[in-house]
Design a protein around this nucleic acid. Structure first.
Lengths: 131, 131
DNA sequence: CTAGTTGCAAAGAGTTTGCATGGCG
DNA sequence: CGCCATGCAAACTCTTTGCAACTAG
């Protein structure tokens, strides 16, 4: 959908790439980029374009009013299942073999075909488990 | 947190109970209840209370600006994994055995402890698969 | 050069809040 | 009767939009 690679879009993309595994609030993106000479409107318009292209996912955590954005076009993670740790906020890409098994189970027990690009599993990661 | 069972809260709870397996937008709840003599403020205040009590989950679908609410305190579904069909919008409770296997897989392959009450899996249900 | 993109400021949508009134227990 | 919850309207926050100026290709 976008035709030109503008300075602003480039800045946004670089920022997202650098924070590919974080669930960023719109606010945080604004705060970060509006210093670099990107206007709020440009941020929103580009985020919206990226979402339409399927490169970004919108997420709302229970308990917050904030919408978060997750960039899913890097590291070939477009086709990964995402795991999000409620404690540290980090996002992980689920192990491919595990994901295959998981998909198979859902198909068998519930006749349900999971859509990896729309699903985020919430829980606690190994690192935070013993905290 | 709520101390009194007011007429308004009762109306809201009955409505939610009746639509326990739907992801309701705030707008729809408003539209439906404000006819029955419940004010917008009461709707929001009660939804917020219910969320704090863990009886309701907020959800934002990709591609929409709307926040949706899912009532998870009925049918003892508090402890179920929820499956949401992107086509028909219905919500299902995952088969208990399947869920157990799924939890085990995540623990083994990714050392990740899933939180059932915070996770919704998106995909396509059996009924819609052949449509 | 020409159409897509930006910035600004104003408009909109959704949600929250203060305060007086009303109602549950 | 006392305190909690409601209703209303105003306040807020987040997001979108119109339009003139700018710029990538």
């Amino acid at each position: 959908m976008p035709k030109y690679m503008t300075k602003q879009r480039k800045i946004l993309l670089e920022f997202l790439e650098k924070h590919a595994d974080e669930e960023l609030s719109a606010r945080k993106i604004e705060d970060e980029l509006c210093g670099s000479g990107v206007s709020i409107s440009a941020v929103y318009r580009n985020l919206s374009d990226l979402e339409k292209e399927g490169k970004i996912r919108r997420i709302s955590k229970s308990g917050t009013r904030e919408v978060h954005y997750l960039y899913t076009d890097s590291h070939g993670c477009r086709d990964c299942l995402h795991l999000s740790c409620k404690k540290c906020g980090r996002t992980y890409h689920m192990d491919t073999d595990g994901a295959e098994k998981l998909i198979k189970i859902l198909a068998q027990s519930d006749d349900f075909t999971i859509d990896k690009s729309d699903t985020v599993l919430y829980g606690v990661c190994g690192k935070c488990k013993n905290t």
